[in-house]
């Protein structure tokens, strides 16, 4: 009777690994400048979550029903390898979205506060100066784009 049970292939850990790598790989979209970049973090989260489901399924198959699937060692190795990209994707999702709200910041239609700050040569530059022509011959800019960024490191 025992010999009649056919050992099945356990593809779940392979799917888990593939999905975990995809979860990390889809971040390449930021560098490639693809549209709908706001969806990439969610896609990465979804892929990592599905990867974890497949990894759990793979481990369950190999260890709970080894008479059907077998391949304990290979499953363990694949799962450990896949947990790294899957875990990084989940941690990445949590940390890159840990931003304070900007609800108190100037919104469309509101006036921005004045400022004077040093440029790269240490020379003070004010918002008023930025809104005036750089030389008598040139026209004043129609607008100034203020880009606040996290810093260069």
């Amino acid at each position: 009777m025992r010999d009649s049970i056919k050992v099945r292939r356990n593809a779940a850990p392979w799917w888990g690994l593939l999905l975990a790598l995809s979860a990390m790989g889809c971040n390449a979209g930021f560098f490639l400048g693809v549209p709908f970049q706001g969806a990439i973090p969610w896609l990465s989260l979804l892929l990592a979550a599905v990867a974890l489901i497949f990894l759990v399924l793979g481990v369950w198959r190999a260890y709970a029903v080894p008479q059907v699937y077998g391949g304990k060692a290979l499953t363990a190795v694949l799962t450990v390898i896949a947990l790294m990209p899957a875990g990084l994707s989940l941690v990445g999702f949590a940390t890159t979205r840990k931003l304070p709200s900007a609800s108190a910041a100037p919104q469309v239609g509101q006036t921005v506060p004045d400022f004077t700050l040093p440029d790269t040569s240490g020379k003070p530059v004010s918002l008023d100066q930025l809104l005036t022509p750089t030389s008598p011959a040139s026209r004043a800019p129609r607008a100034v784009l203020l880009i606040f960024y996290r810093g260069y490191w």
């Binding site: 979205r97 931003l99 910041a105 239609g109 006036t111 921005v112 918002l127």
Partner: peptide, 30 residues
């Protein structure tokens, strides 16, 4: 302490005409 990413398009009357506050530091204004 640093700035959260934020972009303001300010006209000559110092009024905000467009602003962008990302929810994720990986996602920036297009």
């Amino acid at each position: 302490d640093i700035a959260r990413p934020a972009e303001f398009l300010v006209d000559s009357s110092k009024t905000v005409r467009w602003a962008n506050f990302t929810e994720d530091i990986r996602v920036r204004a297009r």
